[in-house]
Computed example of a mutant assay.
Amino acid sequence: MTKEAFEGKLNALVPQPDPEITAALFAFGQELGQEEAYDGVRELLNSMSFVSRHFSAVTTQSVYEIIQHGSAALPGEMVAAAVYLENGNTLQDVAEMADLGMLMCFHCPRDMEELSPLALCVVTEGGHSRCFHTLHFGAFDPDTALRSARQYAHDRQISVTDALLSLTTDMVLDANGGAKKILVGGDPDMTQALSAVFSRCPAAAARLTFDADRSQTAVEYNPLWLELRQKQGPAQSGMQLTV
């Protein structure tokens, strides 16, 4: 992608584009492409487009400006940065988090039209509820996931909650499944932040409930996410709604 094309697309996404910041982001994207062997410029655009559609204008502007405050946020860190900024963290806070590697490997949008696959997840077992989040909303069926987790829990004599925390999107139990695991259990700060912004923006698509005691699941959609999905159209969203 040419510098001119990048500038035109990026400047259309932010409320107050700045020539120096845009140029710095283009250079950063080119550097990523050389170091990581992928299209860093396009990845940055994908992430900024995601942020501009799922978060407030103030948050979008702040994510754009992170590069002025120390370490630039990687494409896979921009969405995480946006969640924290939307929840009230300062730009300096988030820049420091990026510098410390606290935002790494969150979510890297696949294209400029992607709808958020982030969702809150509540697991109830033994009368107690625990909150997590997922990066894979729409990529697995909640009922199938709960049935699989219950079977694994029975076979391996573990809790259903622990089974869900090790379950991957292809319904395989793998404690080392990494990014393929349907639940993120080791980042309570992000779960709390997503919960706090749930009603303010479409960043979190839904709140899923896995009730192991009753063998039931439920999906509470974020109305703002549904509104965004309708605007983009089902063909663009690539997601099927879960009843």
Rank of each mutant, 00 (worst) to 15 (best):
F55N: 05
L100I: 14
V58S: 13
E77A: 06
P75H: 02
T90H: 08
M97L: 11
L103C: 12
E77H: 07
H54C: 06
V58L: 13
I66V: 04
I67H: 04
G70L: 00
E77D: 08
G70T: 01
V94K: 04
P75F: 00
A81I: 00
I67C: 02
F55M: 04
Q61C: 03
A98P: 09
S71W: 09
T90S: 12
A73K: 03
D93R: 02
C105V: 13
E86R: 03
E96F: 14
S56Y: 03
D93Y: 02
Y84K: 06
A95C: 06
E77N: 05
G88N: 03
G70K: 01
N87W: 03
F55H: 04
Q92M: 08
A72W: 05
E96Q: 15
V58P: 14
L100K: 15
D99I: 03
E65P: 01
L91N: 09
S62T: 13
H54V: 04
N89G: 11
I66D: 00
I67D: 04
V94T: 05
F106G: 14
D93W: 03
C108A: 13
Y64I: 06
S56K: 01
I67R: 02
M78N: 15
G101W: 07
H69E: 09
P75C: 00
G70M: 00
S62P: 11
A82E: 02
A82Q: 02
V94D: 08
Q68W: 03
A80Y: 11
G76L: 05
A82F: 00
M78D: 15
Q68I: 01
N89Q: 11
T90Q: 08
E77K: 05
V58F: 11
C108M: 13
Q92P: 06
A81Y: 03
F106P: 13
F106E: 15
A81R: 01
A95H: 03
A80M: 14
I66C: 00
M102P: 13
H107N: 08
T60W: 06
A81H: 05
L85A: 01
Q68P: 00
M97N: 10
M97A: 14
L74S: 15
L85Q: 02
A73Y: 04
I66N: 02
